[in-house]
Amino acid sequence: MAAQQPSEKILVVDAQADSAKLIVLQLQEAGFAAVWARDGEAAIGMLDGDDYSLALLDIRLPKANGIEVLSHIRESGKDTAAIMMTAHGNENLAVECMKAGCVDYLSKPFAMDDMLQRVMRAMTNRRVLLQKQRLEQEKDDFVSMLSHDMKNPLTAVIGSIDIIREGRLGTVNQEQAEYLHAAIDSCNEVIAMIDNLLDIHRFEAGRMQMKIAAYSAVEILRGGTRRFTRIAEHDGIRLRERLSHETPRIAVDKNAFSRVIANLLANSVKFTPEGGEIVVSCRCLKGAEVPWTRLPSYVTVPDGFAEKDCFVQVSIRDTGSGIPPDDLGRIFERYVQSRSGVGRERGGAGLGLAFCKMAVESCGGIIWVESEAGLGSIFVILLPCYLNGTECTGK
């Protein structure tokens, strides 16, 4: 067998000195730096004092048994892998140990060749896991870099362009102002893509902090349409509102939900040709009015959601190129864009709709799209009504 790196240390924890020393000798001949601990207390002290790649733990140990040593390894945060050693008849206990975090178990008495093969396999798996963790850390570092080293300079660029656009450095004519507006819009689009990437990463890592409170859906939607009115007009697109003033409030993270609306509007503008129309709607629905049977299969309805009697439905409809049927179930995934040709030249990372799905679901709602190629699309968000900050069940 190939010799291992000297840094790969193995701790053998066994109260039976003769068998333990034989295991240590076999491991040393295989190229490992193996040492022995005669009881659980000594093993814990040695694990705290040095880094071990693997621990071979007998379940029955004086002072602290093998399960206690395993628990100590996991609680300490060390990346030491563990193989449990147990006498015949204790396999069920060994399986429980594997559920607790050990990677394998050996039934005594065992053949040394079998032991070495299992050790080699555990070491290989550990190396793969550590490499994966390093890659995850590199991804975290890259995402942090995006936030600081790319987003902040872009914000400074927007500020500088805005100073010129406002005429503070000299007169700016209408054509020049249009180009400067376009430059600002492009910078904001890149910042939006960075924000989507960062927040998707936070959602997946369980580190996205949502500040849920009751807000007026109408006010949030109006803020979104105000932002995109000029952009739509520049592209020759009519942007209209159909907002019911009697719509109950919804419980959402205001910043996240505002970005959901912005992402959906940006998507509609991108895929709607000149002369087209985008309509933003909001209304209250009773539970019986919700088209439950029309919900696509990719929509995950939360437990108890369909039993509620009051919902706020937000929809954004466009007269764009539409979405091919085969893409409808994929467009809410990361890095996926519709294969529709119209609008593709405008670019995009395929992150906006993935963020929308994660954000809406984190607010206790659902989102889906209804579309037909060439006939436009309608994105629909359904959230429970909230009255006076309390969920309205209608019962």
Rank of each mutant, 00 (worst) to 15 (best):
A2E: 12
A3P: 11
Q4I: 11
K9C: 06
I10L: 10
A15F: 03
Q16W: 01
D18N: 09
S19A: 15
I23W: 01
L27S: 12
A37R: 04
A42G: 06
D58P: 03
I59M: 08
R60P: 01
P62V: 14
K63I: 13
A64T: 08
N65M: 02
H72Y: 12
D79L: 05
I83K: 01
C97I: 05
K99G: 08
Y105S: 04
K108Y: 03
P109S: 08
M112A: 04
M112W: 02
M123L: 14
T124W: 02
T124E: 12
T124R: 13
N125C: 01
N125V: 09
R126P: 01
L129E: 15
L130E: 06
D140A: 13
D141W: 09
L146H: 03
N152H: 14
P153F: 07
T155Q: 15
A156V: 07
I158E: 05
G159F: 10
I161R: 05
D162A: 13
I163G: 01
R165V: 07
R165L: 11
G167I: 11
R168N: 12
L169A: 08
G170T: 11
Q176G: 05
E178K: 13
I184L: 10
E189D: 13
I191K: 07
I194N: 12
I194R: 10
D195F: 09
D195E: 12
F203G: 05
K211V: 05
I212H: 05
I212M: 15
E219N: 12
E219H: 08
E219I: 08
G223L: 02
R230F: 00
T247K: 01
N255R: 13
N267M: 07
V269M: 04
K270Y: 07
F271K: 05
P273Q: 09
E274Q: 14
E277R: 10
I278F: 03
V280I: 11
C284H: 15
L285P: 12
K286W: 10
V290D: 11
T293K: 13
P296H: 11
D303G: 10
F311G: 05
S315H: 08
D318W: 02
R330W: 03
E333T: 08
E333A: 13
Q337P: 00
R339F: 05
S340M: 04
V342S: 05
R344H: 11
E345M: 04
G352N: 09
V360I: 15
V369S: 08
L375T: 12
N388W: 03
C392S: 15
